[in-house]
Design a protein around this nucleic acid. Sequence first.
RNA 1: GCGAGUUUAGCUCAGCUGGUAGAGCAAUCCCCUUUUAAGGGAUGGGUCCAGAGUUCGAAUCUCUGAACUCGCACCA
Length: 480
Amino acid sequence: MDKLATWQTEHGVNPYPYTFTPTHTSTGLHNTYAELENGTETEDTVTVAGRIMAIRNSGMFLDVMDTKGKIQVFCHKESLPAEFLPQLKLLDIGDIVGATGTIRRTPRGELSIRAKSFQLLSKSLLPLPEKFHGLTDKETRYRQRYLDLIMNETTRDTLRKRSAIISSIRQYLVDAGYLEVETPILQPIAGGAAAKPFTTHHNALDMDLFLRIAPELYLKRLVVGGLSEKVFELNRNFRNEGISPKHNPEFTMMEVYEAYADYHDMMTLTENLMAHAAKVATGSTKVMYQETEIDFTAPWPRKTMAECVKEATGVDFMAIETDDAAREAGKQLGVHVREFDRWGHVLEQVFEEKIEHTLIQPIHITDYPVEISPLAKVHRDNPRLTERFETRVNGWEVANAFSELNNPIDQRQRFESQLGERDQGNDEAHQMDTDFVTALEYGLPPTGGLGIGIDRLVMLLTNSTNIRDVIAFPTLKQKS
RNA sequence: GCGAGUUUAGCUCAGCUGGUAGAGCAAUCCCCUUUUAAGGGAUGGGUCCAGAGUUCGAAUCUCUGAACUCGCACCA
C-alpha cells in the first residue's frame, strides 16, 4: 500500500517499530474515571496502545481497541502538535497505534484521551471487515480466527473464559494436592478408550505410532509407581472420527486418578470441579444455556443406568438373564442391535437412544455393564456391572469415571474379551496392552479415576452450541 | 457417509421469468474539527466457487466436483 511507503519516505517512520510502553489499558481508564463528569478535562497524562477500529471526522476521533476494551483518542489540531497532523491522514482502520495524552470526558459522555502525540506501532495492509455487520461468515471466522477475534467480542469472551475455566480446574486440583503430570501423546498402542486413532510413523525407529485417544493407561502406571497418590493430566486427545457440533478430532481432556478413592469419591470431585469452573466462568453455579438454566450446584442426582431404562421404558434389564433375551428386548424397544451385542451393549444402547437426550440437568449415570467397561472394576454388589459412571449435562457426556480395575487377572481377561469383540467386527474394541497388565501385576492401589471433556464443559459455560466456537483453531478441511 | 441449503467486490448482502454486474460499509481523492455505524461530493474496485453442457446469449437453466452451514448417521 502507498501509505506504507509514505510513512517511511516522507516521515522517516519505521511502520514496524520494536517496542512501546503503554501505561494504561482502556478498561482500567474506564474504571478509574467512571465518575468523571461530561465535559471535564483533566491533566492526567496516560499512554495507551491498540488497534484502530474506527476513524471519525477525518481522524479527529480514533477508536482504539486493546485486549481489555476500547477507548476514544481525540486528535484535535489545537492540542496535537502540528507535525502529527499529516501523519493522522495516513492512519487506517486496522493499524496498531500508541497514543499519549490527557484524560477527558466529552460533552456527550465519551471518555477520551486528548492526544499530545501518537505513534504508528504496526501498519495494517489489509482492510478489516465492515464494522456494522462485522464478520459473520462462519467459515472465515474459523479459518481466520484472528479476524474473528478482532471483530467479535463474543469470540474473545468465549476463548478467554475457556482459559479461565482450564486455569480454575488446574488450580483447584493443584490446591487439593493433585500432581500435574505429562504422559505420551505418541503411543505404540492406542488404549484407554474405544476410538479409532490417528496413525503416524517414527522414521528412525521405523515404527508405527498412534496419537493417543486417552492418557488413562499411562496415568495408572504412574499411580502404580507411586509418583503421587493423586495425579492429573490436562491435555489433548485425538480421535479419528467424524466431526460434529460436539466432536473435534483433537479435543481437551482432563483425567485424574486418586489412590484409595472409588467412584463415589469421583462423583463428588466431578461436582466440585464443575461447580467451581461454573462459578469462575459465569459468577454462579446456575448457568443459562440457550433457553435452559443448568444448575451445577452440588450435589447432583445419581441413578443407575438400569433404573433409568426401567423408568423410561418399563423394561427391567436387571431381570433379563441372557444376551439373546436382551437383544430381543432391545428390538422390541426399536433400538439398533448388532448381532455381537451382549446384554450390556443392549442396555447401553437403549439408554443412549431413549434416555440420554432427556438428561438436561447434571446427573451421574452409574453402574455401567461390564461388557462395555473394560477398564472399570466389577461392581461390589453385582458381577454384571461395574463401578463406573458417566455424568450427563444437557444430554451430553461430560465426564466418565470408575473405580479403576486393579485386578491384573481380571484386566487380562477383559482385554481378551475385547479382542474377541474385535474379531466379531467391533473395530473400536480395546487392544491388549500387556505392559499395562504387567504394571497391574506389581499392584495398583484401589484407585478412583475421572475424565472430564473440557471442550463440552466450556461449551456449557459459555453458551456455545458448536465445539468449534470453544476451540481457537478447529479442524477444517484444507481448501483445494 | 446421507439429506437440505449456501457460495456474487475486502466485509454484509441484493440481483425476478436467461439479455452490458449492483448497494451499504471499507478503499482512493476532495470538503468538513466535538464525532459515536459521523456527514456531504466524486472515483476506483468482480475468475459471479471450479469445470462441462443447453442457448444467439448463462451470476441466473442442467450435470459433475469443491468448500462451508444445518440436520441425521458414526462417535460403546
